[in-house]
Design a protein around this nucleic acid. Structure first.
Ligand SMILES: [Zn+2]
Ligand SMILES: [Zn+2]
Ligand SMILES: [Zn+2]
Ligand SMILES: [Zn+2]
Lengths: 131, 131
DNA sequence: AATAATTTGTTATATTATAACACTATCTTC
DNA sequence: GAAGATAGTGTTATAATATAACAAATTATT
């Protein structure tokens, strides 16, 4: 059974808040040091919150950076994520492109079976790193 | 400048051989224990070989698994990788689909700028895990 | 209130990856 | 082929990322 009100718990809110305030993907131990003043003092507290936040879709993990970002709420496909990542500064944005999301969601393997999820990471150079 | 003969070195060959012999993505420390009898006894030896092998395209890293696979030599796009990963057993295969690879390579950001690379991980259930 | 389920706090440890340094082998250029 | 540059090696130590395990506290259900 879930939380009756289906709300985030205290620790989950603290961690989510920390991630949302960053304009870049945040690392777990960076979160930990940022929220230590709020009482979260050990890695499991952060990792447990992250696990739940990811599960409910509030947070995504950027696998190639071992970092975490808040969902920009424009997730088109519930089972897929698309990110644009700056190779130079790690600035990351969630890509909302209907055609691309649909293409990936509809993609089937050799046997014609659809995949249940996907994660796409696009690498490039962000605006401010170009100048 | 590179190795004149552009060949892999002893350690690189040992590590590549180990990866190629596996039918699943291999973890760095698993490689380490597998090749310890061949003289590679410390993590940096494995990680340095991996770095080079990835650089030359012989090996890819599966980011979501922190594991490594040998390139199946069918890389369509030099700057992009596509993998199909079984959520149940981690069995991974490199996907060679021209349409998908082209779609991803040609994809442009909001400003019309092309990305320099991509990595797509497709999650599903492999044949043997379905039965 | 009793029970069950979830969340939390805490300690310890596992796993993944790199820094730093001395040394060796190989390549380049003269 | 010697001098210098580059790349690879071996080694020790340590950094960075993530989870196991268990006890205590909180919240939900009966
Ligand atoms: Zn999202
Ligand atoms: Zn940038
Ligand atoms: Zn490949
Ligand atoms: Zn499987």
């Amino acid at each position: 059974m879930k939380n009756k009100k289906n709300e985030l718990t205290k620790n989950q809110k603290i961690v989510l808040d920390c991630i949302q305030k960053s304009n870049k993907p945040v690392k777990a131990y960076s979160i930990l040091s940022n929220v230590s003043k709020k009482g979260l003092k050990a890695p499991p507290q952060v990792y447990r919150a992250l696990e739940k936040l990811i599960e409910v879709g509030e947070v995504h993990k950027i696998e190639s950076l071992n970092s975490f970002v808040a969902c920009n709420s424009k997730c088109i496909e519930p089972n897929g994520t698309i990110f644009s990542i700056c190779k130079s500064c790690d600035q990351t944005t969630e890509v909302s492109n209907v055609a691309l999301a649909k293409f990936l969601s509809d993609f089937k393997d050799m046997n014609g079976t659809q995949f249940s999820g996907f994660n796409l990471e696009l690498f490039g150079t962000c605006k401010s790193c170009k100048t």
